[in-house]
Computed example of a mutant assay.
Amino acid sequence: MKRIVGLLFLCIMALTLFACGQDQASDKEVLELLKDYKTVQYNIKDPLNPPSGTEIGEKVKGYFREDEYEKQMANRVFQIAPEIAKASNKSIQLENVKLKKSKENKDGTIDYDYTIKLKLYDDQSSEEIEKNGQLTVDGLKITRDWEDRSS
């Protein structure tokens, strides 16, 4: 009887640990999430007719927890790429994303540092810009996205 109870207890513990581990996304999944999100945020093909910040915001809404999405919209974050494209008369394309885990928080969220490389280009020239940022995720939902806007 003790053996059966012990075995049952071990099975329950293993299932509990397995279930808890399913809430956290792998670093690879977070990298794909970030690539997809930043592609939508930054890729501008036609600088003379870019999407609005609101249009971009609607496309990326599913990547965010509601409160962070509202914060990003209020800060007009999704307006930046269209304004840069229009002002420079250059298209923008996400070239590369690097992601590094920085901290696992007690609340189950995970902090990451990231670097994105953007290419601004037209028929005559192109230049690459690197932007650094920080991301916090809860599973596969963004709870914080901060970019260094000084560069």
Results as ranks from 00 to 15, higher is better:
31 L>M: 12
27 D>F: 09
49 N>H: 09
97 V>S: 05
5 V>D: 00
143 T>W: 02
119 K>H: 08
4 I>G: 03
73 M>L: 06
80 I>N: 15
73 M>W: 02
50 P>A: 09
127 E>S: 06
34 L>N: 11
120 L>K: 01
47 P>M: 04
102 S>W: 13
4 I>W: 05
39 T>S: 04
130 E>G: 04
25 A>W: 09
66 E>L: 03
111 D>V: 06
40 V>P: 11
4 I>D: 04
110 I>K: 03
20 C>H: 14
149 R>S: 15
137 V>T: 09
71 K>H: 10
64 F>L: 13
107 D>C: 13
62 G>A: 12
93 Q>S: 02
34 L>K: 14
40 V>Q: 08
127 E>T: 02
126 S>Q: 08
149 R>D: 15
66 E>A: 04
144 R>A: 14
72 Q>E: 06
4 I>H: 02
141 K>E: 06
98 K>A: 11
52 S>Q: 12
26 S>W: 07
96 N>S: 11
22 Q>A: 15
9 F>N: 10
25 A>G: 13
17 L>F: 03
9 F>A: 15
88 S>L: 08
129 I>P: 08
127 E>M: 10
59 K>I: 01
90 K>W: 08
70 E>W: 03
1 M>H: 15
129 I>S: 13
39 T>N: 05
16 T>C: 07
76 R>F: 07
97 V>G: 03
117 K>S: 05
99 L>V: 02
54 T>C: 13
140 L>I: 07
24 Q>I: 06
8 L>R: 06
55 E>G: 07
3 R>E: 06
133 G>N: 06
145 D>R: 01
81 A>E: 00
134 Q>V: 09
48 L>K: 08
4 I>Y: 04
87 A>E: 11
50 P>W: 01
76 R>T: 01
83 E>K: 14
32 E>L: 06
55 E>H: 05
66 E>W: 03
77 V>H: 15
126 S>M: 04
22 Q>H: 09
142 I>L: 08
105 N>S: 15
114 Y>V: 09
51 P>M: 04
86 K>T: 09
44 I>Q: 07
33 L>N: 03
91 S>I: 01
73 M>H: 03
95 E>N: 03
6 G>C: 12
61 K>T: 11
87 A>C: 05
18 F>L: 12
141 K>I: 10
98 K>P: 04
119 K>C: 06
92 I>A: 01
22 Q>E: 15
93 Q>W: 00
20 C>V: 11
10 L>M: 09
108 G>M: 14
139 G>A: 11
109 T>N: 08
88 S>G: 10
30 V>M: 10
5 V>M: 10
100 K>C: 13
1 M>W: 07
97 V>Q: 02
107 D>M: 11
49 N>Y: 14
124 Q>S: 13
83 E>R: 14
75 N>S: 12
62 G>F: 06
83 E>P: 02
43 N>D: 02
141 K>G: 00
33 L>E: 05
49 N>R: 10
105 N>D: 10
16 T>P: 05
104 E>R: 15
27 D>G: 02
47 P>A: 04
58 E>I: 11
115 T>L: 12
91 S>F: 00
52 S>C: 11
108 G>E: 07
25 A>I: 12
111 D>N: 14
81 A>M: 01
90 K>E: 07
150 S>M: 00
11 C>P: 02
91 S>R: 01
9 F>E: 11
96 N>P: 02
80 I>T: 12
79 Q>G: 12
120 L>S: 06
15 L>G: 00
84 I>M: 07
